[in-house]
Design a protein around this nucleic acid. Structure first.
Lengths: 190, 190, 190, 190
DNA sequence: TATGAATGAGTATTCATTCAT
DNA sequence: GATGAATGAATACTCATTCAT
């Protein structure tokens, strides 16, 4: 049983898990996820040995999607501020346009089921972005911190911004930019 | 009245819930909470009719503790920056010194069990603080937002800062101040 | 603790039990009964040592009420048919006017909680009536049975008749008399 | 399909429910029923979604068995009295030979758990029998009632008769016939 | 490989009864 | 005697996981 047959089915399960868990939280029953995915209860376990494994894979999948969005159309040659703005814009719109995925990410982030190893793996993809942000930092005190700190500033402010965007959809773009201003100031962006 | 309902017991249950849920999440069994509180399984339900009610009360209790800490020794007459710094310092040290309470707050914040009404009630106490922060805002774009936005900037950055303080206890104070700098810059504090 | 103080309270409990059990069946919680009776949960147990005792007393009370109604205004000197008709009329109207009490009697009659001794005691009061009915029996085969058999014919037909009276309140009296005719024929009443 | 849901198992559960509930009433725990049926506690709920559904299905099963017995060997061409006697005989012997089933029917009949829809469905099968009995009715007043009334006279008297048959097994047949005489007279059978 | 019935430990909640006040 | 908080065994139902088909 090297790799299970259908990549499609694996994706269907992950998609179903996002849908169901956005509503029911990480306590959502695997049976409901299976039904939503259009497969039998038992089949889920040929793709994910345990529910915890599903949760961990899901965490990675969700973080992966976010990363993908942030790199999609990334203006590699552009000035720093523009590049960072691209990342910011992609982040908050990812969350505002796909609230289920984002809800699941929030829940899994604070869940005991996600292993430290998974968290590390999930963070790895964002190294580059963190470093880019760190480059923008002009505030002395913040320059002394690891790039992670700058990256974390972005995540936390972006996440907060998404909340406001979801609460007031008509002022979405306003919040997106207000959030960016706060973020850019926070790191003393040049 | 026979035996009056004991405030002590109520508090013991809430304390036990914090301890147990910090480890097991909101899915923690009420039986474990009762045992930890030193009471019978059934007794828990004379104080909280359902587990959901316990969760909602707990949310309020935890937010309340945080608010209390932030107002404890508050330098009412001091300059704005000092007052905001007091609030920040109290917030992040509350989280760093009582990680269980803080973990529970994080988990409940994203839990479906917390009713909107509870969230509103929990936020009310922080109005004053949000307004104080909003006063500090000098960035034009951010001035146009509600005080909530400023308050949310603080919460999200403080929360992120706590993570770093917990991960590197020896650099706790360093992170506390670095976080404050980022926050103060974010809102363009004067 | 010879006899508990208040006979009123005892009656309140029995009345409450009837009301609550008519809705919830014999599984009705004693706490609900106590609340309905306007007393504390624990007080119920100074009047009835256990729930089963309450149930048994209730059975007797309900049967007693029925018997009382049947003897109320009983035309002692009247011809047999008239006397039997009085009993019948009282029975079915008791059930039709107090459906809660009657529902409880039905439920307790088939409940495992009612002790044989209680059933016997409850039946004793009806000996006289059974004997009166037995006197009316003119059918040879039925004359050979114990008076109980004649009494049981009456109870079962009366109970059935009550069902119809409750289902069609506007035809109540019609059913009362139709039932009596069936009953009188059944025993070959002279 | 994997393992198909086994009709045998469903029947085993119903049989177990009859046995256990005859002793413990409708309050009998599902766990005891499952054990008696030789299955796991949880398995019961793959066959009956809730205990109430089990109760309702059981009601139908029990009524169905009774109806089956009444129609078994039914002398379709025979004179009316003989046909009615067949039904009566089958009814009371069903109850006398399978007291557990009959006890359960009594209990469920007065239970709040049985839905009106279930009662209607359970009664449908007996329409034909009620009509046959109604045909036998020669008493003017009873002729004006719906066939249900005649059917109800039979049920109530048969049920009473079963009680006597069970209490005095050696006089079983005597009571069967005495009961029939009463019944036949009640409806003024021709 | 896919299926879904079977499992049984686990969970929130109820409730008769006790007993401190 | 009256109260109602405390108790903990009992109960319906759930759910991750297994495994026969």
């Amino acid at each position: 049983m090297a790799r299970p047959k259908s990549e499609d089915k694996r994706n269907a399960i992950l998609a179903a898990a996002i849908k169901v868990m956005a509503e029911l939280g990480p306590g959502a029953p695997t049976s409901k996820i299976a039904r939503e995915a259009g497969i039998a209860e038992g089949t889920l376990f040929t793709y994910f040995a345990t529910k915890d494994e599903l949760l961990n894979q899901l965490y990675l999948e969700v973080k992966g999607t976010l990363h993908e969005k942030m790199m999609d159309g990334f203006p590699h040659g552009a000035p720093l501020r523009e590049r960072v703005h691209h990342a910011w814009h992609a982040y908050v719109h990812w969350g505002a346009l796909d609230p289920a995925r984002r809800k699941v990410m929030q829940q899994l982030t604070v869940s005991e089921a996600i292993l430290p190893a998974t968290r590390i793996k999930g963070a790895e993809a964002f190294c580059g972005i963190s470093e880019m942000i760190a480059e923008s930092v002009s505030v002395g005190m913040l320059r002394d911190q690891s790039p992670d700190f700058a990256g974390a500033i972005m995540s936390s402010l972006a996440d907060m911004t998404i909340d406001f965007m979801l609460r007031s959809p008509d002022r979405k773009e306003n919040y997106c930019e207000a959030g960016f201003v706060a973020f850019w100031n926070a790191i003393g962006g040049k």
